[in-house]
């Protein structure tokens, strides 16, 4: 099997949910005819290359006690976006922060996703973010109902 095909199989395995057992990579190693150590080293290589952004547990926010999430869109001058984005990224409660290409009529171009335990916590945080960045033109785009949430299957 070529390196590319092996990596493909490894990605197929780790893009899902690894088994909760003492040696979670043993079955994959056996199937690919490699040692578990080789599998782990390849996963680490993929992480070092940035193909794997992180290797971690993903929680269900709501069940973990983070009952409120808000997508917040800020109106920011593109030239100022790096400064604002960097400040926002520094907050633990901000899980995602992007500058987006948006239609001119919409105009709110810097998106941050916030997870919190309560609406009060969100409001306090928004005040703090607005104060620290100096950006006061923003809209909260609260979720009302989840329609779909899955992890991407790339291969």
């Amino acid at each position: 099997m070529k390196t590319r095909d092996i990596n493909r199989e490894i990605i197929r395995f780790v893009q899902g949910d690894i088994p909760v057992e003492s040696r979670p990579f043993a079955s994959l190693a056996e199937r690919l005819n490699l040692s578990e150590k080789e599998i782990v080293e390849r996963i680490r290589d993929l992480r070092d290359q940035g193909v794997i952004r992180r290797f971690a547990a993903i929680l269900r926010h709501y069940n973990a006690g983070f009952k409120v999430n808000a997508m917040v869109a800020w109106k920011v001058a593109v030239a100022d976006a790096d400064r604002v984005g960097t400040i926002m990224a520094g907050f633990d409660e901000v899980s995602h922060c992007y500058l987006r290409e948006v239609p001119a009529e919409f105009g709110y171009n810097l998106f941050s996703m916030i997870h919190a335990r309560s609406t009060e916590q969100i409001n306090t945080l928004l005040e703090e973010l607005a104060f620290r960045t100096g950006i006061s033109d923003y809209m909260i785009i609260k979720s009302i109902r989840e329609l779909k949430k899955v992890s991407m299957e790339y291969v």
Binding site: I11, V14, Q15, G16, D17, I18, V20, I43, L46, R47, Q49, G50, V51, I52, R53, R54, F55, A56, A57, I58, L59, R60, N63, A64, S151, M152, Y154
Partner: peptide
């Protein structure tokens, strides 16, 4: 961990891939 998965607290454990680096 098994118990927290069953209770729906842990969604999954694995890799979070970079869609751009995956060519997507």
């Amino acid at each position: 961990i098994q118990a927290m998965k069953q209770r729906g607290i842990i969604r999954r454990t694995g890799a979070i891939l970079d869609s751009r680096k995956m060519g997507f």
